[in-house]
Design a protein around this nucleic acid. Structure first.
Lengths: 211, 211
DNA sequence: ATGATTGTGGCAGTCACTGCCAACTCGGCA
DNA sequence: TGCCGAGTTGGCAGTGACTGCCACAATCAT
């Protein structure tokens, strides 16, 4: 049911994950300290103790290195999509799927949540990171649409599915933004919950659809 | 009613517009022939008869040069946004705004329409152009939201406005994609109408919201 | 006309990113 | 145990995007 242990976890595989982790940690750290424009790929590679050449074997751009959290969350789509019921309204179901995916982040205290929070805080002031995230989302969208189409049994160029998936994606983006905003502004009280923020966003959306 | 003659059109101004036009035409033309990756900024600059250095005074990236049609359509938002009525439902009104903006494109026969069509056909096979368009949209979104907030009289960080503007933007994106798809696939009959495509997309969206 | 403003081209430089090759490491197998 | 094939790494050279700086030319205001 999980996606981790499907590959035979040899030493090579483990080493590769560890290196990726080290690079992305170095990138996140340097971006926080000096800004994205303020550090080069060479800087990140050095901090992660790999050669610049190796950096590019792991990530296509320096921005991508900071987006592993984003990518990992999207990776879980494949797992949750199987829960779709073809005979029920699609949009609320996709919303539920996203709730399942965002649950691993919640208040940003888990490792995955903390990493995502750092990223989204960075994104508030770093246009290049927002762009890279947009890029990642766009790359994944067709895959999502194909997966959904497969489960509910229509063609991938079905207009309804496309609109539904894109709309839901937009709402997730808004929720992530507002989550980071809330965390940034917070002075007291518990850390804002991403799932709650997402539910609020969906509620606002539904209100607007009714008029 | 038009946006052209608001500035005192001196020779400098006219010359500047003409140069921009020449560069973007050269870019569009070369992209169509050799692909985005297949030509350099130097190529485009040479074709437009300017120096590479001057190219970058007009456009930040080579992709941007192909996106003037996109930018010009978005520029009209400022004009149509004044028609908003604060006391009526927002989402259908924003949809109407977009119809007004997309009307200048319609079947892609007008100069603006033709240019947009060339761009959207390119975008079907050029990820870098899709990314650049996403980037442009994102840059504009805050401006849109601020304008809407100003007219309806709320703060720019209003959740409802944000969700409405982003949702509508998503639907426009889908409609533009489908428009280009329809044009590409068309063998006979009249050229597909963008406004009609957009209305279809909005209709599908409304259907999905009801469930 | 003339001085201020603005646009242009060239040059040097930084940095992102890629292809290629040589050295090394891990995993399986005789 | 020794050895081969596959996967991983680093260096190097090269291309191309993009920028700052400077000198020069074209426009505009007076």
């Amino acid at each position: 049911m999980t996606t981790e242990q499907d590959a035979p976890t040899g030493l090579r595989e483990r080493r590769r994950r560890q290196t990726e982790e080290e690079i992305s940690e170095a990138a996140l750290d340097l971006f926080e300290r000096r800004g994205v424009a303020g550090c080069t790929v060479d800087d990140i590679a050095e901090a992660a103790q790999v050669s610049p050449r190796t950096f590019f074997r792991y990530f296509a751009t320096k921005e991508r290195a900071a987006l592993v959290a984003h990518r990992d969350v999207e990776d879980t789509f494949q797992r949750v999509v199987t829960g779709l019921r073809p005979d029920e309204p699609l949009l609320p179901q996709i919303e539920t799927l996203w709730v399942e995916m965002l649950e691993q982040l919640r208040d940003g205290q888990s490792p995955a949540g903390r990493q995502m929070l750092r990223l989204r805080l960075l994104m508030r002031t770093e246009p290049s990171l927002r762009l890279a995230a947009l890029h990642l989302d766009e790359e994944r969208r067709d895959e999502f649409i194909a997966l959904v189409a497969g489960v509910v049994g229509t063609t991938p160029d079905d207009l309804d599915i496309r609109v539904t998936v894109e709309t839901a994606g937009t709402l997730v983006g808004v929720a992530l933004d507002r989550w980071a905003d809330a965390v940034e502004r917070r002075t007291t009280g518990p850390t804002p919950d991403l799932v709650a923020t997402y539910r609020d966003t969906c509620a606002a959306f539904r209100r607007l659809c009714r008029g």
